[in-house]
Design a protein around this nucleic acid. Sequence first.
DNA 1: CTTGTTAGACCAACCGGTCAGTCTTAATTT
DNA 2: AAATTAAGACTGACCGGTTGGTCTAACAAG
Lengths: 209, 209
Amino acid sequence: MAKTLGLRKNPLKDEREQAFKQAALKLFSTKGYHKTTMAEVALEAGFGKGTLYWYWKSKEELYFALVEESHNEFVDLVRRAAEMEGTALEKLAWLGKETVELHYRERDYTKLSWKMRAEELETFSPEYVERMHENNAEIKRELQRIIEQGIEEGTLPPADPYYLACMLLGLVEGMEIQWLEDPEAFDLRKAMEMVLSLGAKVAGQRWSD
Amino acid sequence: MAKTLGLRKNPLKDEREQAFKQAALKLFSTKGYHKTTMAEVALEAGFGKGTLYWYWKSKEELYFALVEESHNEFVDLVRRAAEMEGTALEKLAWLGKETVELHYRERDYTKLSWKMRAEELETFSPEYVERMHENNAEIKRELQRIIEQGIEEGTLPPADPYYLACMLLGLVEGMEIQWLEDPEAFDLRKAMEMVLSLGAKVAGQRWSD
DNA sequence: CTTGTTAGACCAACCGGTCAGTCTTAATTT
DNA sequence: AAATTAAGACTGACCGGTTGGTCTAACAAG
């Protein structure tokens, strides 16, 4: 047929890869890593198991390809927030809203990423664990930058910025848990709005002792 | 003759059960549920696999016995906070400190409980999942009571108390994650103190619009 | 033919749980 | 105190099922 781009050998390759990823995401995010078999993923994608192994060399690799994709999206968001124009509070408000939208848009990814977090990290290959760790550190670093700005501006309390970053991240992650566990009872959008409005109210505070 | 003998009790039984639990806690909390085998648990405790099955009828049952033990301890704490004398802020401060101490004292339990939370809940028997859910709901209920009191007293913002409870719980859980992942970099005690002191500072705020 | 791609049978390892049988010892009898 | 009895604690080989990963035959395209 049409051999669109000269260089590409199999124009279907990307498409296939996408199909596998989608199938894997669906299964991993609902059934978890251990209870999902490679045969299932292949079947869900509509191919044979051997084909799946032609694209990824192991179950672990397939899994982390997905996890990393999801993480990168969030890292990107935080980075953009840190680099945009505006006050720290504006940056955080923007980041908060975008984060929520990201999660709503890609709920399966959020679920997956979340599962892997508590999954037995100790048992995955050190190489992958290392990458996850670095990823996480980067997020905290960017967050810290924003917070330092906020402290200078006087809208955030003059406390250890690293700890504030961890706490902020913790708050959001904690809310994500609540949301994932019971999306009906806990609306993440509403929660984020509450946090931001409380934050804004409190920002006028005289922080100095 | 040939009378049935009276009930006999092995004085070592409790002790043995403890040994199994301890071994299981150690392995589950470091390697996770799936990667821990019953044979390992038995070996670690110094007994044969069959004996382990004498005490628990399945791997799942053993696991949830531990998880529940840990959860109950926390539920108990929250309940006591809700029922003690004092202002909402005093209750929360007490609860926060006790919670941190509990986690330091029983780090393995915390880790286990945390793992199970994100582990593929969907794959455990509904019976167990149901119990975990109820447990969690109870915690939120008690927390909500304290928060309602705080709103009345004017020290907490007049917002949806259920959401505030979820957010508070989320904050603490999120911090626990940070701590579990890197206890060196993130000292849970220090973090909790920061939260409480910030909370106290902000409590004077005029919340009304 | 050569090269890239796909399918699915097949394999070896693993693991939860069982079971037939052994050992220990409290309770009872002599 | 000694002997007897059986509850109950314990064992580990074994079974059945599962699953990650491999291998090869086939097929398609150039």
